[in-house]
């Protein structure tokens, strides 16, 4: 009886030490779930979800504060991927947050721009180049199409240009063909 107790106490102490040590040694900084959710989000940083960026939205989802269908750039496909990750039921995109639009990049009409730097301050990915009283321009390859630069512009010189398909970005389409009607044959 005492031996059994001793064995159990010994085991409890040893395992407790191992667990305690590994809790310190293998401590994960931050919530790994947030990073995994953030990896699915399209990183447009547009804030249409109601949070100031993709990471805050990911944090909110991880905490259970936000729904998975609030990201218009991610669309239904994004919501599906999030549902799969979170083990939740799929929900179609919540239209209150906006519609999914084809990808576009901002374009500054440089002859109208007055160089006020308001758009530069609004851009979440530093994709606008310029300085005070100098004409601004968009670095198209870095623009995520978040449209955050549109409202602050005092002269409305920014437009969204859809990204057109070219021979490099062109994709082979899903094959479509006729199937034989077996009952007739």
């Amino acid at each position: 009886m005492i031996t059994a107790l001793l064995v159990m106490i010994f085991l409890a102490v040893v395992l407790g030490l191992v667990l305690g040590y590994s809790a310190i040694k293998f401590k994960v900084d931050g919530d790994p779930m947030v990073a995994r959710i953030d990896a699915i989000l399209p990183q447009t940083q547009c804030g249409q979800c109601g949070y100031p960026g993709c990471k805050p939205y990911a944090t909110a989802i991880a905490k259970g504060e936000a729904d998975i269908n609030q990201c218009p750039p991610g669309g239904d496909a994004g919501a599906k991927a999030l549902a799969e990750l979170m083990g939740m039921e799929f929900k179609p995109l919540n239209q209150e947050h906006g519609e999914q639009k084809p990808r576009a990049v901002a374009l500054i009409d440089e002859s109208t721009c007055i160089g006020c730097t308001l758009c530069i301050q609004a851009c979440p990915v530093d994709a606008i180049l310029g300085a005070a009283k100098q004409m601004h321009t968009i670095i198209a390859s870095e623009c995520t199409g978040c449209e955050l630069c549109l409202p602050p512009c005092p002269v409305d010189c920014i437009t969204m240009e859809p990204v057109l398909e070219n021979s490099q970005s062109w994709k082979w389409k899903y094959p479509v063909y006729n199937i034989q009607n077996v009952s007739k044959a």
Binding site: Q43, C54, K55, W172, Y174
Partner: peptide, 29 residues
């Protein structure tokens, strides 16, 4: 079908890469 799947995967990888750059740029900002 293979051509479709290949170009779809390539496009997805490109989008992922662009998203990673956007994330980095946002974080550094």
């Amino acid at each position: 079908f293979y051509r479709y799947a290949k170009s779809e995967i390539i496009a997805q990888d490109k989008a992922k890469e662009a998203a990673n750059t956007a994330r980095e740029r946002n974080e550094s900002r």
